[in-house]
Structures are given as C-alpha cells and as structure tokens.
Design a protein around this nucleic acid. Structure first.
Length: 309
DNA sequence: CGGATTTGACCGGCGC
DNA sequence: GCGCCGGTCAAATCCG
C-alpha cells in the first residue's frame, strides 16, 4: 500500500522574503541578526539609513507573517477539501454490512452509538448486573480495521502485534466468506475479541472488527519502548488509528490508497470526529518534525516580536 | 506433550 | 412459539 500519498508535504517553502535571508543564512545568523536589530532599536541615536533598513526589515517580516497566515489558511482549506473528499468517498461506498436488512439491532446500535467512559457505579448492583454492564461496556468499544491482502491469500490473519487465539469460525448469511473469531490470548484476563472476515465486494480486503479494550500494554511496546510511531510496530496492519485503544465506533479504511472505485467498504458512521483528529495529529507531528517549518516559525515569532517593539 | 486450530453442536436474541 | 442466525463452546485434531 502506498501511504506516501497520505503524507502531507511539510517542506513548506517559506523563504518568501525578497532578501532570501533565511535561505542563505544559517539559523544562528538569523538570530544574531534579530539581536542586532534589537540593539539598533535601543540606540537613541538612530541613523537615518539604519532606520530605513529597520523599516524595510519590518516590512519584510510583516510580509512573511502575512504569507504564513495565508499558508495556514490554505492548509486549512486543503484539509477541508481532503476531508470533504473522504466524506464523499464514505457516502459513495456505504458498508454493505450495514445496508443489510437482516442486520441485528444490537450490533448496529453498537456501531453507531458512541458511548461514554465505562460506568463505574456498579457497587450497588448484583454480580449478574455488573457482569452484564461490563459486557455492554466491552461491546461499545468497537473499532474496525480494513486491511488489503493478496487475493490469493486465504488465511484470515490480521497481524496487529497482539496474540490472538481462534475460537470459532462461521459462514454468515450476508457474506460467503467465513468469519473467524479470535480472543486476545496475550493476557488471560484480556476481554478483547476480534472478528475477521473478507469483504463481500473485494475479496482481497480483510475486515477486522475489534471489540473491547486491551487491559495490557501492546506486546511490541513492551519490547520496543523507544519507538515514536506505533504504526511502525504493527506488522502488516495499515497505518490506522482505529485499533481498540481508540475511542469506540471509529472505522477507518486506509486501504483507499487504491482508486476509490476499487474498495467499497466504509460506512457513513465514519463521519465521526475521529478522522479529523487523526489527520490533525499527523499534520502536527509532521510539522513539528520539519526543520523548515521550525525555522519559519522562529522567523515568524521574531517578526512578531519586532512588530511589538 | 502442550498449545493452537478446526469444526460441529449448542445457546440465546430477534423477527415473524 | 418457532425458526433463523450470529456467537460461543468444547472435543477432536494438528503441529512444533
């Protein structure tokens, strides 16, 4: 899968000033320049030409600020466009599972109603009731992951780093492909379950439905604690934010790196705020890691400070 | 030999 | 109440 198309190019070309100051001068020189400007401001006997240079610098920085603002606006617009495209894609490819009239009420409810945090006021209820409540809570933590595999690969294995024990397989009515049932076997008390079934429309797409939340750390996290990006440790799972650790009902199809007409397995419920959150986080991470952006930010802040002086 | 997987039986919820 | 269907159980089987 090609995720590069999802990555936002953060190499912002912010060197918009006519003097190409930041492009040619190292960061340190920029800062020195800024300090010297400050000194100049403090001098009581300001020469005409230095005042002119200062005004010009001020103008330049203001222009840069303006450009930054414009770029930010443009970025927001791009984001909105992307989001719109995503929503349109979701609408065009409604999940067959949800369109099925035979769909059980309970399951569809679980998928569409975002529930809050686990209720903790179980002290007054009986064991049976608390057990029931717990069950309901587990059921509310549902997420779905779409994973593209080789069409020839008939195994229903989704490698996500956790250890799963298969406890059943069933052929369901709305899908000729068998559905496999897994329980998390990494921790004996872990309540998480996973259902894996091939997509009706695209046999090369595996649909993994996670129920519940792991009550133990991710196995790969126990081995690799320094990894900054969890997606890198998830084996063959697409870079997805919809693992069980995410809030309920998040369903993301990151397999859409192929043409949108190819995969048709998403549901309208993906219009949850989850998607923007993921994108925003991704953008923020990318931006903060980009030296160009940081340099531009420094310049912008410097400009702002100059403005205030 | 022990753990994982397979697979038919069973259970319970839901719709008619 | 009955039948259908998804989900789970557990004995049998497989595999390292």
């Amino acid at each position: 899968m090609d995720y590069s198309s999802w990555m936002i190019n953060t190499s912002l070309d912010l060197n918009i000033n006519p003097h190409r100051l930041h492009e040619e001068l190292p960061k340190k020189e920029v800062e020195n320049n800024f300090l010297s400007l400050n000194l100049e401001v403090k001098k009581s006997s300001v020469k005409q030409e230095s005042a002119g240079a200062l005004a010009e610098e001020l103008k330049r920085v203001s222009a840069e600020n303006k450009k930054l603002t414009e770029m930010l606006t443009e970025m927001c617009e791009n984001y909105n466009t992307l989001r719109g495209n995503l929503m349109e894609y979701m609408r065009k490819n409604p999940d067959k599972e949800h369109s099925s009239s035979k769909k059980r009420k309970s399951e569809s409810n679980n998928n569409s109603i975002p529930m809050g945090v686990n209720g903790t006021s179980e002290s007054s209820s009986t064991d049976e009731e608390s057990c029931k409540k717990q069950k309901e809570d587990i059921k509310t933590k549902i997420s779905r992951v779409y994973m593209r595999t080789e069409a020839s690969d008939k195994s229903l294995i989704v490698k996500d780093g956790y250890q799963w024990r298969k406890y059943g397989q069933k052929v369901t009515r709305d899908n000729p492909s068998p559905r496999a049932y897994f329980k998390c076997s990494f921790a004996p008390s872990c309540p998480v379950k996973k259902k894996v079934q091939r997509s009706v429309d695209d046999q090369s797409v595996l649909v993994a439905t996670y129920e519940g939340e792991h009550n133990h750390p991710h196995p790969s996290q126990m081995e690799v604690t320094t990894g900054s990006n969890r997606c890198m440790t998830l084996g063959s799972v697409p870079c997805s934010a919809s693992l069980s650790s995410s809030p309920p009902t998040a369903t993301l199809d990151w397999t859409k790196s192929k043409s949108s007409s190819e995969s048709k397995n998403t549901s309208p419920k993906t219009e949850s705020p989850e998607v923007p959150q993921v994108l925003v986080e991704q953008m923020a991470t990318s931006l903060t890691k980009d030296p160009n952006f940081r340099a531009a930010l420094v310049a912008a802040i410097s400009g702002k400070m100059l403005h205030n002086n």
